[in-house]
Each structure stands twice: as C-alpha cells, then as structure tokens.
Design a protein around this nucleic acid. Structure first.
Lengths: 229, 229
DNA sequence: CGCGTCTTTGATGCAAGTCAATCGCCGTGG
DNA sequence: CCACGGCGATTGACTTGCATCAAAGACGCG
C-alpha cells in the first residue's frame, strides 16, 4: 500500500535524524520534496539482496531488518533499523545492487526516494558531508558487531545489549524490549533458544525477564558477566 | 623511521588506488603534496584504538592489520590491508578517535597525511565522492566478513578464501599466500590451529598446502565444501 | 649446528546450534 | 464465556564446531 505524502510529524522526525540533521533546512526540505511513503506488514520483503534497487529509504515507523541469506537458506542479520534510519544508501553508490535483503521486522512505514535524484545532489558539499557522516557511522556499527561476535560469547553479548539500554548512572533499572525476542536474537547473532538460555543464565545476575519487560537489580553484577565471568 | 618523500613508484601506485583513481590528476597530486612516509617493522603499532589519530594513512608496501582488543586482551581482526589501501579515514570524521588499533603484520611502509588538510578538501565534490566510494566499499567488506562469520563454518570460510584467489574459469590452479598463516587465520576469524585443521580437512578436496604455496586440484570439489559439505 | 618461531597434531572442554516437546499467551470462533 | 488453535518462548537432550592447552615437528636464521 502506498500513501502519497509525508505527514508533518514524519517530516520533522526525519529532518532531525542522522542524515538530515547536519543539512541546512532548505536542502533537507528539497530532498523530502519527492518522497513517497509505503506501509508494510510484518515479514514483508522490501528488496532482496543482489536485486536492483533504485531508491533510498528511511524508516518512519516500525523496524526494518537487513540481512544476508546463505547458500543453504540460513539468514544472518546485519542491522535492525529503528525509526529515522536510512538504508539502501550504499546500493546507490554501488551500481544500484543491494548488498543485503530488507524485510519489515514489524508492521512498518517507510519513506522512499528515487536514488538518482539524491545522487545528483551529492555535488552539494553539505549533502556529500551528510553521506560521509552516515557511512562512517554505519561502518563503525558494523565493525562493532563484528568485534562483538568475535570477542564475546552469546551471554556476554546479551549482557552488553542490556547494559547498552541502561541509562548512565543508574544501577537499578528496567526497560521494555523494542521488539520481539526473535528479532533480538537475530541482531545478537544467536538462535532464539540461545537468547532464551542466556536470559535464564543471567537470572543469577539479577536480571528478570517478563514478556518484553526486563528488570535489572544490580548493574555491577551484569558488568561481571559482560567482561567474561 | 621516517623518510621524507614518496618515491615515484609509490606515487603512481597511490594515484591508481581506490581512493585516488576517481579523482582528477591534479587533485590527487595536490593531496599527495604534503604526505610523509614512515617504515615499520613487523608488529609495530601504528596507533591504538580510542587513541587520538590526526592523520590518514595509505599502505605503500607490506600489510597493515586493523583489529580491536577485548576487555580480556583477546584480539579480533577487522581487516588486513594490502598495498594501496587507505585507513584511519573514518577517524577523521568521528572526532579523530581511532575505532580500531593498527599494526604492521609484516615489515611495512606507510604514507601519512595530516587529516585536517584532507578534511578541508572534502568541500571539493570530487574528493567527497572519492570518500563516499571508499566508505561504501569498506562498509560492504565489513558486512561480507560479518555475514561469512555468521553463515559459514571455519572450513567453509577457508574454502571461500581459497576460491576467492582462484582466477575465473580455471578449475585447477595454485597460488602463494600473501602473508603468514597466522595472519590469514586472524583474518578469517580462526585460531591458528583452526586454520591448520581446516587445511588438513581440505586435503580430501584436493587442496595441497606446502609452506605458503597452495595447490588446488579440482575447483568443484572445493565448491562442495564451501556450500556446506 | 642450535635456537626460536611458526605450524601441525592430539586431547579435552565449553559454547552454541539443532531437534523435539512443552508451555504460555493471545485471538478466534463456537 | 469457554474451548480451541496457532505462534512465540522456553526447556531438555544431543551434536557439532571450535578454542584451548600441551607437545612435537618443521622451518628459517644467526
């Protein structure tokens, strides 16, 4: 399903997101001029790896999962993108070939723009700089994940994730998972069963899981786990 | 040790490398104007993660290893950079903080440039485009490694690597490893012992390893392994 | 020739994937 | 309102992959 234009809310949300935030207002508005909007049910496929992709996308709501599919059909998540994130941006510089598949991990709304239009604007130094910032940030994210995969065990990655959700300074806190456990498992490079077991091991570090609510009794106990206890 | 200027060979090599190849000759030469050169023994540290890095680098010869160090001291390789590759480029856009450590994996020679100088040139659309291309390419590399780590076993990654060295169309070939097995193991996310065992398993697929020389009798047998045999 | 470093091999243990069964939750329809 | 069916989450038993430790072998270098 396709709706024609961006709501005002979505527009201001996007203008505050990573890609646009460094751009002059007028440039940002000009880019958003020709944007279209589409909605997707959970599990809808936006595009498939190696397919031709002539658009760039922004997540307006929901959650988009980027992943690769192996020869045996198994899938590996590369990123889980929340509201405001841009994607398929590197396809537009790499011959319009998608480097990964994109799927709605929940019901989602997505903004899209013909990438040729944006491509021309790269001659504007502000736009180029925005791309560079975005790409650097993305590169670091992927490096972080790779390093975590190689340096930490599953349980340690889960502990890290929980701590990353902890507001600085608090030792005792709780939060709601922003997505299904399924999705979190994929993001952390674990099978769903593995995540489940990790949670149950972390109980002894004072972590209580109830549906999507996670409660941490003592931050420091968790930090022990994160560093290899 | 530091030598003053670039040799003519190095200069033309760099001008043909990924970052410079899309740039007008004059722009490339201007950038290389203020470059300095340093040489490093194997295992020399160029910079450490989280350190301040005010330069960007190019590999003139040898091999530079980018890696992260975990809290327990274990190391995870993010990339092994051969001649012509640029690095620490994202530090210059991320507050001059290195996202990884860099070490010479062999005796190496490296060109370096004050990153503030290059930073100013990003307002030149050609230079900006060169950065964007570089960053996209790098992002894809890292994604590839992540996907390989998550989708393939160690043996399959080794098989993939060997096949990636195979000239298209030939079914029967041999080549020399461009670095120590140690380094290859790290690049593939394996312990050295793991790589050794992988080679010995692959013997039954017609792979013969003798020092740094690798010989493949039948490409197709290897492809079986790569896909999960 | 002898020493150190890289590599290989073997034995062992842990991490995590897989398969299968169960449980709990929620929405549907009777 | 309750019974049913479906799906995600959990748990258990088992298997595989790989790191680790230890020792022996190969290789290069002074």
């Amino acid at each position: 399903m396709r709706t024609l234009r961006l709501t005002l809310n979505d527009r201001t949300m996007l203008l505050g997101s990573r890609f646009f935030v460094g751009l002059p207002r007028s440039t940002g508005e000009a880019i958003l001029e020709d944007v279209t909007v589409s909605t997707h049910k959970e599990r809808d496929l936006l595009f498939h790896q190696d397919e031709n992709v002539d658009e760039v996308f922004w997540v307006l709501s929901g959650l988009i999962r980027l992943y690769r599919v192996g020869k045996d059909g198994r899938e590996a998540d590369l990123a889980i993108l929340p509201m405001g994130e841009m994607f398929a941006e590197s396809a537009m510089f790499l011959g319009h070939r998608a480097t990964a598949s994109a799927q709605a991990a929940q019901a989602s709304i997505v903004a899209r723009l013909d990438s040729r239009k944006l491509r021309h604007l790269v001659s504007d130094p502000d736009v180029a700089q925005a791309f560079i910032n975005l790409l650097c940030h993305r590169a670091k994210m992927t490096e972080d994940i790779l390093a975590q995969d190689r340096l930490l065990t599953g349980i340690q990655r889960v502990a890290s994730y929980i701590l990353s959700q902890c507001p600085a300074g608090s030792t005792n806190f709780s939060f709601r998972l922003p997505f299904q456990k399924n999705v979190l498992a994929g993001k952390l490079g674990l099978a769903p069963e593995g995540l489940s077991r990790a949670f149950s091991t972390l109980r002894q570090a004072g972590v209580t899981v109830n549906g999507k609510t996670i409660e941490i009794r003592d931050r420091h106990a968790l930090e022990q786990f994160q560093c290899g206890g």
